[in-house]
Amino acid sequence: MAGYYHRIDAIRNAANLKPVLGWRESDSVTAIPHQQPLPAPDVPLLALDTLWFQVAGTLCNIECTHCFISSSPTNRSHEMLTLADVEIRLAEARRLGVRDYYFTGGEPFMNRDMLAILETTLKQGPATVLTNGMLLRPELCRELRELFDRSEYSLDLRVSLDGFDAESHDAIRGKGVWERVMKGLRNLAGVGLNPVITVTEAAEGVGSAEGRTRFLEVIRGFGFARPRLKVLSLFRIGAEETRSHGYEEWERLSMDGLTPVDAATLQCSSSRMVTSRGVYVCPILIAEPAARMGETIADTLRPFALRYGACHTCWVDGVNCRT
């Protein structure tokens, strides 16, 4: 029954947060156990718009209890990418007409090449960095601001929080993290950069309209007069599987196929993820060997079968990791 109630939560959250094109409440019934289950549907790659880089690998300066790829100071499942690694991928992405670039980890600013990587990327297209905010020292913020100003394309930052206050945040991210992030956010505000604050549903109540309003007030309190907020779904894999529980057997997609409109709502129809180990279908599934689609980006320009529990979350919640 726990799974059942979770599904209801997911449907409610999807209705509140993500009334995406093509999403229908009735779609959730596709997950109900079937006498003879239909196969996992294939998602075509409609267009390669977004390229992700696991730029810090799975290395992070903290160890969040909800991390779907279990990043930590010692997790070397995926290594950091060098500037040269990124340049090779950018050259291929240019030929393929990629629109924009996202950098994540682990903690991207642990990568010593990060500023050079951004500088190079921004000559080709817009870039977004997902950070925990702990390393946003005044000098780095100044350099990011200069890069922001001199780039024709947009440089955006996303800083993750996990609660309305130090207690709830640090329960997930570790003791003293809130205080360091606050310093980082003040440094960003000080140079006039206005990040998107992302918060997962692990933060109690943030999924509701009331919770969002409250969170926007919290962000204003950090010194951002124009608060930007994105609420993220939780994926019950990696560390999060231990913190809550994994996916139930029925939390798999089984259906005849997807219409192009349905497929367009899924980010795997328009993005791929580069790590030190190759090119994966999406930012969520890099711990799954079968989600590695090839060595080059060109190898991955083909459909992917939505066979994982996390795919179920993406479908039901209408998840898109893009801003």
Partner: peptide, 16 residues
């Protein structure tokens, strides 16, 4: 389609 997020390679692809 925004100026700062529409990369040239992407727009080339749209034209193509």
């Amino acid at each position: 389609l925004w100026h700062s997020t529409s990369s040239e390679p992407f727009l080339e692809r749209l034209c193509e």
